[in-house]
Amino acid sequence: MESTSLIERILRGIAITVVILFFMFPIFWIFLMSLQTNETILRVPPSMVFEPSLQNYRALITGQLETQTGTLEIRFMGNLFNSFFLSTTSVAIGLLLGVPAAYAFARLKFRGSEDIAFTLLSFRFAPPLLVLLPLTIYFQQIGLANTYGGLIWVYQLIVLPLILWIVRGYFEDIPADVEYAYRIAGHDFWATFRKIALPLAGPGIAAAGLLAFIFAWNNFIFALVLASADKQPVTVGALAFITASGIQYGQIAAGIILSIAPTFALALYAQRYLVEGLSLGAVKG
């Protein structure tokens, strides 16, 4: 029995290593690329041996992109700020609207509640490109085009359904009796929502917020069409690296590293809390 379990453990270790390599290798490779110049990146065959340099990062941070044809102005740091501002604000507004709505859908079974919830989800069905054309025209007419407010509004299409449906499930998992018990103890509806429902759905709200943040952060098409240079997030801003004199792979890689860093850090930080929250099995009594 000892020997079989040893073999089992070795096999399991190998399998896990293969999976980790498969998923982590691209990120690792991009990290290496970000420390190289275009010449060493495009070597054939590729090699892991090179002299690391931080010039790609320097270029991004100073905004001076050196190409073979000359110096190009890029606003990568501005893009990064835009991404940050747009995603955070969208998620904050999405949570503010979505969490109470999710609670209503979970607990107050009113006429047509299922239909409304489904309609909200159906926003996610339409290909964004189809929505964009009419949206662009309306936005231009009412003066929302190329404003943060307009973008944040459109981002709700991404953020709100996600938050609504994830958080609703978490609210539904809280036994109604736990809330009834608090009501019967003498607390009103709002106190019960704040003191019982919100804390117990906390992990779910955090997970939904995190996912919504990542989706908002990675959005490309809405911002591409509705925002001009000074409002663009990193996803759109990265297009600037495709220059007349060629594609700046090194800077793209550095841009990717910089732009995934915040979401990566956020996910790592939230992971511990999420796992803790999910093991809060006591909710079931």
Partner: peptide, 12 residues
């Protein structure tokens, strides 16, 4: 005052 079959304690 009420006591529930599944206790319905506030887990947090």
């Amino acid at each position: 005052g009420m006591a529930f079959q599944n206790f319905a304690l506030f887990p947090h």
